[in-house]
Every structure is written in structure tokens, then in C-alpha cells.
Amino acid sequence: MSSRAARVVPVVVLCAVLAVGPVVGGTAATQPGDGVPSGPFTTVAVAPGETVEGRVTATGGRVVVAGTVEGNLRAYGAVVVLTGDAVVTGDVQAFGGRVVVDGEVSGPVTAYGGTVAVAGTTGDLNAGGGTVRLSGTTGDATVLGGTAVLADGATVDGDFEYDARLDDRGGAVAGERLATDSLLGPVGAVLRLAGWLPVVLTLLGGALGFALARADPRTDVLTRRVREAPVRAVARGTGVALASLVGVLLVAATVVGLPLLGLLAPLLLAGALVLLALGSRVVGGVVADYLPVSADAAGLAVAVSAAALATVPVVGPAAPLLLALPGAGAAAPSARSLRIRSLLSVRGSRE
């Protein structure tokens, strides 16, 4: 294997792991015999065959309810799953990055997450997320967010009110279908358009990367950094992404955090655009080493390809992230350089 190939292969492998990791981690792995999702950071709040009387509150990376709760349920996690064997005699409030309700809930259900899937039987439903999929049976249903999927086999015994883009695949609604923008107003329109944000940002990033390369040839230095140490650059970019995510979560956890994030949203989008621009330029420069194309053309082709992948359901949004990581790693100063700069500044101040 050539030295160039030896440098590129680890990057490809790492990118594949990063792309597949969220999908694998978010998929409910099962244990033999009980069908309960398992894995690291999993909290099984109620095990199969177990009955808990009274209110149950559970938090964790992944919260699983597979038994009977004779009372109310409160579940908070990156993933919240009520399996097909779950029974809740009271009401349910579930909040997470992904919420799956496959069991039987006698009372009303409030479920909010990045995606919400309701395939079981519930009382009245109030659900919100980027995508809300109904394939079970509910009472009155209110859906907020980007897309509301009324799957074939879904039954809404009452009214179906939605402030979302409706994807009707043959579900039955006994009452009225009420399309309204009064629930979220302009925010609902923003959420619906947000589904195209990864695509738009990636394309704009590719164009900005092309412009930066023409305006300042020094961006080629970033390409050399990735070419010389690809794994280090991607690892550094991953560190930047994780640190940014932790910072956003910490800010959001404060009293003024959410309004502050709203004010900072334009700056966050601008930062993401710059990282995508650098990423398209950096990856394009590496690709140009192996194909008979210019770095400019390769950078644009990389951005267009990432934008096309971003349209793929579920895994698509990972494509812009993977493109931004090498750009962030190439642009971020290394820990060693930061130490050197700190020592030089201290020495200068002493003199």
C-alpha cells in the first residue's frame, strides 16, 4: 500500500464509523428472548414482566420501558422507547432525541423529540418533532413540527390537528382534519424549512470554499495539514464538534439559555457555513491528489455530493457533519501550538 493510500484509508474508515455510529446507537438492539433494547448508557426503567405501581420517572442516554406501569410515566433521554409489551395505565410524558411508543397507554401521551414514532395504542396524543409518524391508534391527535406522517393502518379516533407538512399514506381519521399554522405560527414554517437546512448550508459552503481559495491561496495550508495527518485532523475536528455541542447544551440548561441561543443562532449558522467551506476545500484538495481534476472542481464536487447525501432520510444529516469535521480539524490549532503560544505570551509579558 502506498504512503498516500495509508494516510487516506484511516480517514475513510473513521468517517464510516462516525456516519454509522449514530444510526447503530439509535437503533434498538435486542437481547435474546425479551426483545428489550440494550447497549451502553441504557436505562431499563421497567423490565419485561415487571409491574411498578405509582409514578415512574426515568432518565438516561436511552430509556426503555418494557413492563407495566400502574400510574404515570415520565421519561427523558436521547432515546425513549416504550416497547410493544409496555403497558401504562396513566399518562405518559416522553422527551428525547428519538421517541418510540409501541406499547399500550390508557391516558394521554405527550411526546417530543427529533423524531417521534407512535405505533401503539394511546389516549389523546400531543406530539412534536422534526418528523412525527403515526401508525397506531390514538384519540385526538395534535402534531407540531416539520413533517407529520399518517401511515397506512393509523387510526385517529378523534380530530387530527397538525401544524406540519402532512404526508398522508392512507391513515384513518374519525373526526376532522384541521391544518393550522396557529399552533406554531412562523416557528412552524421555520421547522418545515429546517429539513432543507443541511442541504442548503452544504451547497453554500462549497461555493464559499471556492471563493475563499480564490481570494486567499493560503487555504492550501489547511489541505496540507489534513494530507499530512488525516486521522489527527479528523480527531481534532471531532473534539471541536463535541466541545461545541457540550457548550450549547450547557447554555440551553440555564434560565436565559434558550433565548440566548436564539440570538446566537445566526452566528452558529455562520460558523457551520465556514466549517463546511473549509471542509469542502480540504477534502477537495485531498481528492485532487488522486484524480485528474483541479482542487477547485473537486471541492465543489465534494460539496454537491454531500448535499445530495443530506437528502437521504435518517442518515443524511450526518453527511454535512462529516464534511465539516476535517475542516474544523485543519483550522483548529493543536494543543501543542496553543502551549507554545501561551509560553511565548508569558515570556513576552515578563520581558
Score class of each variant (00 low, 15 high):
residue 214 R to K: 15
residue 232 R to T: 11
residue 279 G to T: 00
residue 76 Y to F: 15
residue 262 G to T: 14
residue 250 L to W: 01
residue 47 A to H: 13
residue 295 A to I: 02
residue 283 V to T: 14
residue 175 G to N: 08
residue 256 V to I: 08
residue 116 V to D: 06
residue 211 A to S: 13
residue 98 R to Y: 06
residue 91 D to I: 00
residue 143 V to Q: 13
residue 56 V to C: 03
residue 144 L to K: 08
residue 296 D to Y: 14
residue 215 A to I: 10
residue 24 V to R: 10
residue 238 T to C: 12
residue 342 S to R: 13
residue 56 V to P: 03
residue 123 G to H: 04
residue 314 V to T: 15
residue 320 P to F: 04
residue 83 T to C: 14
residue 74 R to I: 10
residue 61 G to K: 00
residue 287 V to W: 09
residue 27 T to M: 08
residue 51 T to F: 09
residue 154 A to P: 03
residue 168 D to W: 00
residue 276 L to N: 09
residue 9 V to L: 13
residue 67 G to H: 01
residue 348 G to N: 13
residue 63 V to M: 08
residue 291 L to H: 00
residue 113 G to L: 10
residue 74 R to A: 13
residue 166 L to R: 05
residue 335 A to H: 09
residue 213 A to I: 06
residue 191 L to P: 15
residue 232 R to G: 14
residue 138 T to W: 06
residue 8 V to H: 08
residue 265 A to W: 06
residue 343 L to Q: 12
residue 149 V to C: 07
residue 87 V to F: 03
residue 38 S to W: 14
residue 227 R to Y: 10
residue 133 R to P: 09
residue 219 T to R: 13
residue 85 D to I: 07
residue 186 P to A: 11
residue 326 P to H: 08
residue 318 A to H: 10
residue 44 V to P: 07
residue 331 A to G: 13
residue 113 G to M: 12
residue 281 R to G: 13
residue 153 G to N: 05
residue 91 D to W: 05
residue 231 V to Y: 05
residue 291 L to Q: 00
residue 243 A to N: 01
residue 170 G to S: 01
residue 84 G to T: 14
residue 294 S to P: 15
residue 231 V to E: 04
residue 258 L to R: 08
residue 65 V to C: 07
residue 225 R to I: 02
residue 69 V to E: 14
residue 249 L to E: 01
residue 116 V to M: 06
residue 247 G to Q: 04
residue 34 D to P: 09
residue 178 L to Y: 02
residue 27 T to Q: 05
residue 299 G to L: 04
residue 158 G to C: 08
residue 109 V to T: 11
residue 102 D to Y: 11
residue 20 V to S: 03
residue 347 R to K: 07
residue 266 P to F: 06
residue 49 G to T: 03
residue 41 F to L: 15
residue 283 V to E: 08
residue 157 D to S: 12
residue 308 A to N: 02
residue 48 P to I: 10
residue 248 V to N: 03
residue 281 R to N: 12
residue 305 S to D: 10
residue 124 D to M: 10
residue 40 P to N: 06
residue 317 P to Y: 04
residue 274 V to Y: 13
